[in-house]
Design a protein around this nucleic acid. Structure first.
Length: 270
DNA sequence: CGCACCCCCTGCCGGC
DNA sequence: TGCCGGCAGGGGGTGC
């Protein structure tokens, strides 16, 4: 579920609350996540102080004293909820963390596609394998052109590849390509320089706007206080099959590719 | 290398 | 009303 804007929204909410706080207790209620929690998981966090909350792609990262990072990936249905009482735990709770000052952090995940790992920042494969941050200066048209020029895959699949650009998922890939006026199934190789430049501009603009609207809530996503995002109200193509294009009124098309839906306007996107 | 397909897991929704 | 298939924002693996 959560893509970069949702994880960034969660990060911004949790950061002031978690920074400087000690982890007093960790209870594993359901270790069967996508990567099963190891028997030592709780002891690695116990007694640590959270020094910083940062994000890489869709990964939320808590930097701990003694140099390690607690990496949390929310998968499709993961939520990190803040509470002030050990009761009132959410359903499907997998991990409950007690923090200094009577604060609780609940990880709940219905489908259990999320995972958590603890390790040295420089050694975590989940971080090392990620491509550039799309909102950083390092993400330039030349960077994306280099990948496009040697890839026969569709531009949509390229944008979904976390090794190229970190943080884009199926919703934002579609909104980005609509803004850039490029058909999602165009081979990346076929994009002109000017089109790649439009894609880079659209990535920045769509992700920034989605962060401003606190992410997209379709069915599952909520922030750490249980609040919905609002960007779903601004979708131009995602989930809008048959509805009129907001620019030209052509019904939005939907195809399936590789088991996933592809949405686009056959008039506005070329 | 790219892709079609399968898996992980649960809930929900629409059709019959 | 009830069951069944399809579908869902995540990633990874296999075999062609």
């Amino acid at each position: 579920m959560p893509e970069l804007p949702e994880v960034e929204t969660i990060r911004r909410g949790l950061s002031p609350l978690l920074k400087g706080r000690e982890i007093c207790g960790v209870e594993v209620l359901e270790p069967r996540l996508r990567k099963p929690l190891t028997p030592t998981f709780a002891s690695l966090l116990q007694g640590r102080v959270i020094e910083q909350v940062f994000r890489r792609g869709k990964c939320l990262c808590l930097r701990l004293d003694q140099g390690q990072v607690w990496l949390i990936h929310l998968g499709m249905t993961g939520r990190l909820l803040i509470g002030s009482s050990p009761n009132g735990s959410p359903s499907y709770e997998c991990v409950r963390v007690t923090l200094e000052g009577g604060l609780y952090l609940h990880y709940r995940d219905v489908r259990r596609f999320g995972f958590m790992v603890v390790g040295e920042e420089g050694e975590l494969w989940e971080l090392r394998s990620l491509g550039v941050e799309p909102l950083s200066k390092a993400f330039t048209p030349d960077y994306l052109k280099a990948y496009c020029s040697l890839s026969r895959r569709s531009i949509r699949d390229l944008l979904l590849d976390q090794r190229v650009v970190a943080g884009i998922g199926n919703i934002y890939a579609h909104e980005i390509l609509f803004r850039a006026r490029i058909l999602p199934l165009r081979p990346a190789l076929s994009l002109e320089d000017q089109e790649v430049e439009r894609v880079v501009e659209a990535i920045r603009a769509v992700l920034q706007e989605a962060i401003r609207f606190r992410g997209s809530s379709i069915s599952d996503y909520l922030d750490s206080w249980g609040r919905k995002g609002a960007f779903q109200k601004r979708f131009c193509v995602y989930g809008r099959e048959g509805k009129p294009c907001l620019l030209c009124a052509t019904p939005i098309s939907r195809l399936r590719q590789g088991g996933r839906s592809v949405f686009f306007c056959s008039t506005c996107q070329v």
